[in-house]
């Protein structure tokens, strides 16, 4: 009885402490987040041009979206990036990080910097560099393909190849993720590596059976933020292709942006945003559940 009381008191104290620690977030939520989020939810049921007053229209923004060909095209393109671009980028980022972290390799410090610097370039400049890289006749990628006797496609001006070009760019800017993977790798205890070495496990087996499983919380983080990033992806396609050719690079947020700021359809854009919220949340919950990444191992 006494013991039980003590436990419940400790539980209460822990709960109180927990709320105290997250208090800044609660305040921030109340001050800066709830109002804009609630507003956007309300707008999503309105005809709202920003300049005029919002007028309530019920579900019509939502139903109209599913009749909108550009919207459907943007969903398809975004799905393509999530299903193909995100796994490829994650694969590359994880392996580069594991290589970089390998204790046997010396002089990899400068390489960490190399992989990170692409994220430092201002977006406009990065886009300029990529237009150059992707040039059909003299661009870097096609020049290199040319060495192997392959005639490269028109990349950004090609309906088929524009999205792969953006995946390449996505890989190029994975430095942020590499940093996080590297930090995550510091959590993998060296003794585990030693044990694996004694068992005679090679580098790749060690990585596959020890490193990657232990890296799961970090992978989950990066995949989730990457998916959100794809949903919100806008500046690069806006600057480089404006969604063209023929809507091949019309991504979700690019169309959302056009509706919100260029076509005066803030209500419509808000409905788009809320569909995105629901879909992204569903994907994320599935990731959390199916891979059980969420559960701390010992809590």
């Amino acid at each position: 009885m006494n013991n039980k009381n003590k436990t419940s008191r400790m539980r209460k104290a822990e709960a109180r402490n927990g709320l105290l620690f997250i208090l800044p977030w609660i305040i921030g939520l109340a001050l800066f987040t709830i109002y804009p989020i609630a507003s956007s939810l309300y707008y999503s049921f309105c005809n709202y041009s920003v300049i005029g007053k919002p007028t309530f229209v019920g579900w019509s923004n939502y139903t109209n979206l599913f009749k909108d060909k550009t919207f459907l095209a943007s969903c398809k393109n975004t799905l393509y990036m999530i299903c193909i671009g995100v796994p490829i980028t994650t694969f590359v980022a994880v392996w580069i990080s594991i290589f970089l972290d390998s204790k046997k390799l010396k002089h990899t410090g400068w390489m960490r910097v190399v992989f990170f610097i692409p994220t430092l370039v201002p977006t406009v400049v990065a886009c300029l560099l990529w237009i150059w890289v992707m040039q059909p006749d003299t661009g870097l990628v096609n020049t290199i393909l040319g060495y192997f006797g392959i005639q490269g496609p028109g990349w950004l001006s090609s309906v088929k190849w524009a999205k792969p070009a953006f995946i390449l760019m996505m890989i190029w800017t994975c430095g942020n993720q590499i940093i996080i993977y590297l930090a995550g790798l510091q959590d993998v205890p060296a003794t585990l590596y030693d044990a694996a070495a004694i068992d005679g496990a090679g580098f790749f087996r060690t990585a596959n059976s020890i490193t990657i499983p232990l890296l799961r919380p970090t992978i989950l983080y990066n995949v989730v933020t990457l998916i959100i990033g794809v949903f919100q992806w806008f500046a690069e396609p806006y600057i480089m292709t404006e969604g063209g050719p023929s809507n091949a690079t019309m991504f979700y947020s690019l169309y959302l942006y056009q509706n919100a700021f260029q076509f005066f359809k803030m209500g419509y854009a808000s409905a788009q945003a809320w569909i995105m919220l629901l879909v992204a949340m569903a994907i994320i919950l599935v990731l959390f559940k199916v891979f059980k990444f969420n559960q701390p191992e010992d809590q």
Partner: peptide
Amino acid sequence: DPEKIGAFTSGL
């Protein structure tokens, strides 16, 4: 082929 023409027009 419009993609070939793209090679002409996608100059930096």
